[in-house]
Amino acid sequence: MDKRAEKPPGDRRTIPAYVYYSMMRLSPEDQFDREKVNAAAQQRQEWVWIYEDGHKHIGNADWIKVFATEEAASAWFAENDPEGVVWSYPIETET
């Protein structure tokens, strides 16, 4: 039996990207271990949220939006593009 919760269609509740990506690096068995998931999430990495406006031309000042926090991205989307999509990426700090 799959222990994962099922969300109804249209449910937009999410978990923070850093928690999701930290958890997905774990083995499938460890993803169900709360202590291991919490430990992975504690090793928080810096992230940015990136939005591309496909209606703008490359180089246009509004073509790409980069947000420092998920909250900032959500606030911008609520006002400017409620149906838009943002991608989260870890900031590379090591070479």
Score class of each variant (00 low, 15 high):
residue 68 A to I: 00
residue 14 T to E: 11
residue 71 E to T: 13
residue 3 K to F: 08
residue 58 I to G: 09
residue 35 E to R: 15
residue 87 W to G: 06
residue 33 D to W: 00
residue 22 S to Y: 00
residue 47 W to N: 01
residue 45 Q to C: 00
residue 38 N to A: 09
residue 25 R to Q: 09
residue 69 T to R: 03
residue 75 A to S: 14
residue 55 H to I: 10
residue 27 S to R: 06
residue 14 T to D: 06
residue 89 Y to T: 02
residue 31 Q to E: 09
residue 65 K to M: 10
residue 34 R to W: 04
residue 60 N to Y: 14
residue 91 I to Q: 11
residue 58 I to W: 15
residue 70 E to V: 01
residue 7 K to D: 08
residue 7 K to R: 14
residue 79 E to S: 04
residue 36 K to L: 10
residue 56 K to C: 07
residue 11 D to E: 11
residue 87 W to F: 13
residue 66 V to H: 06
residue 14 T to V: 09
residue 22 S to T: 00
residue 66 V to D: 05
residue 16 P to W: 03
residue 35 E to S: 14
residue 86 V to L: 01
residue 51 Y to M: 06
residue 41 A to D: 09
residue 33 D to P: 03
residue 14 T to Y: 01
residue 69 T to I: 12
residue 69 T to W: 07
residue 27 S to E: 05
residue 64 I to Q: 13
residue 57 H to V: 11
residue 75 A to E: 14
residue 84 G to K: 01
residue 38 N to V: 05
residue 69 T to C: 02
residue 90 P to D: 03
residue 4 R to G: 07
residue 92 E to N: 10
residue 50 I to R: 03
residue 32 F to M: 04
residue 76 W to G: 00
residue 14 T to M: 03
residue 17 A to E: 04
residue 27 S to A: 10
residue 41 A to S: 13
residue 39 A to E: 15
residue 92 E to G: 06
residue 86 V to Y: 02
residue 65 K to V: 04
residue 33 D to Q: 14
residue 82 P to N: 08
residue 36 K to F: 08
residue 39 A to Q: 12
residue 37 V to Q: 01
residue 21 Y to D: 05
residue 55 H to C: 04
residue 93 T to R: 03
residue 38 N to S: 10
residue 79 E to W: 08
residue 44 R to I: 08
residue 62 D to T: 08
residue 5 A to M: 15
residue 73 A to Q: 00
residue 91 I to S: 12
residue 37 V to R: 01
residue 94 E to A: 12
residue 20 Y to S: 01
residue 14 T to A: 12
residue 91 I to F: 14
residue 28 P to R: 12
residue 31 Q to R: 11
residue 92 E to H: 06
residue 90 P to Y: 05
residue 7 K to G: 11
residue 34 R to V: 10
residue 15 I to R: 07
residue 29 E to K: 10
residue 1 M to V: 13
residue 40 A to F: 00
residue 88 S to P: 08
residue 10 G to N: 07
residue 33 D to R: 04
residue 71 E to M: 06
residue 59 G to Q: 10
residue 16 P to T: 03
residue 94 E to V: 08
residue 78 A to G: 15
residue 55 H to Q: 15
residue 81 D to L: 05
residue 92 E to M: 07
residue 29 E to R: 08
residue 64 I to D: 11
residue 63 W to D: 02
residue 20 Y to H: 09
